[in-house]
Simulated assay, not measured.
Amino acid sequence: MTSAKKRVVVVTGASAGLGRSIAQAFACEGASIGLFARNSERLEAARDEVERLGGKGLVLVGDVADPQRVEEAAAEVEREFGPIDVWVNNAMTSVFSPFNQMTPEEFRRVTEVTYLGAVHGTMAALKRMLPRDRGMVIQVGSALSDRSIPLQSAYCGAKHGMRGFTDSIRCELIHQKSRVHITMVQLPAMNTPQFDWVESRLPNRPQPVPPIYQPEVAADTIVWASHHRRREIYVGLPTLKAMWGNKVARGLLDLYLGLTGYKSQQTDEPERPDRPANLWQTVPGPYTAHGRFDARSKGFSAQVWLSEHKWALGALVAGGLAAGVAFSRARRRG
């Protein structure tokens, strides 16, 4: 892989929310970044941010649900910047709605963007990385890729699907003895603008299930993941609890979420009648990385820090234990 200062990165869903924060974080390393999303105005603003932070940006307007456009975008990035080193599949959409009120078209659209968008991005990336035998694909996952919640059946299904196909590809890369790496970063509730623009049938305004984290927490973890060959990374203690809790108490979590999951995804504010929705087309407006939950959001995760430093901490603990044993033996001899 090339040096961090010269890496070429593609980020889907880069015009706002977490994708915008991911682009900013890579820009701080001096990366050249292909910025892929539907909204050209916000992509231009994201490019300006990237270049102010020390990176280079390339605006790529398109829909990840269109595999031909994703392939064209990958080719554009390599013509402009050279070989792609890191591809981040971040683009998503959702519908806040009971399943029995959704239409087949809505369910299909969420699946095409959130799941098949990642499939299309992975295809375009591996087409280029496999012959070079280097590169990394990062899937932006969620605690919901393992532990589903009510009112987001299409999104939960898409994230489950992303995890399933990622595991399958990983096995194939191992079989091929490829040095290309694929990882999945599982996220908690994030303070992003999606809660102001995803399709919703809820009576009150949607919110992330607390506790909520700032997008920079996840973005910095994703950049860290791009330098390390971890199979999977959890961001935030809530993600860890959800993933492991689902392994041992699925039925209890079904009951708990059935009782609490509707209320926890809504604020006390009634929904606006003029609410925008980005399911079928992009929503205008100067949305950036953050949503409207700054006052309630955490800017640091001790769990992430421990995860990133676990080997060093393990070595430190082992060294301390060994020193303690040696000291105890020396005392006995003395």
Rank of each mutant, 00 (worst) to 15 (best):
Q68D: 13
I149K: 02
H160N: 02
E44K: 04
V64M: 02
R329C: 08
E271K: 14
G236W: 00
W244Q: 12
L144Q: 01
T114I: 11
I182P: 01
A73V: 09
I33A: 03
S148T: 03
G117R: 00
L279M: 12
S297E: 11
R333L: 13
P203Y: 06
P104D: 13
D146G: 06
S328M: 03
A154S: 15
A295Q: 15
A75S: 13
K298H: 15
Y287L: 06
K159Q: 09
D167L: 06
L240F: 14
D274R: 08
P211A: 14
L43S: 04
H175A: 09
P83D: 11
F300R: 12
P131M: 14
G320Q: 10
P210C: 09
V185E: 05
K159I: 10
R52I: 07
L240P: 02
T122E: 02
Q303H: 15
D294Q: 11
R79N: 10
R250L: 08
S145D: 10
E49T: 14
D133K: 06
A289I: 09
D268S: 14
V9E: 01
G82L: 14
K263H: 13
A154N: 09
E71H: 13
P208K: 04
L253P: 00
F81I: 12
T111P: 01
S153R: 07
D66F: 03
G164H: 11
V70Y: 06
A124N: 11
A154I: 06
R7C: 07
F165A: 06
A118N: 11
I212M: 03
V248W: 10
M92L: 12
E172Q: 15
F107K: 00
L126I: 15
A27E: 11
E216R: 08
S328D: 02
D268W: 14
V198H: 01
Q207G: 01
Q194V: 00
N191E: 03
N204A: 07
V77A: 12
Q68C: 08
S297K: 10
F300C: 12
H228L: 13
R292K: 15
Q265N: 03
D196F: 06
G164D: 11
K127E: 13
A14E: 05
V110W: 01
V9L: 13
V185M: 06
A277C: 04
R108W: 14
A125Q: 04
S153V: 13
V235L: 11
Q303R: 09
A125W: 04
A125I: 07
S3I: 10
V235I: 15
T239S: 06
A219C: 04
A277H: 00
C171R: 12
V61D: 05
W280D: 10
T282G: 07
F165G: 02
E80I: 01
N191W: 00
V50Y: 01
I84G: 04
V8A: 09
L18K: 05
A124Y: 10
R38G: 06
S142P: 12
L257H: 10
E308Q: 15
D133T: 02
Q194Y: 00
T239M: 04
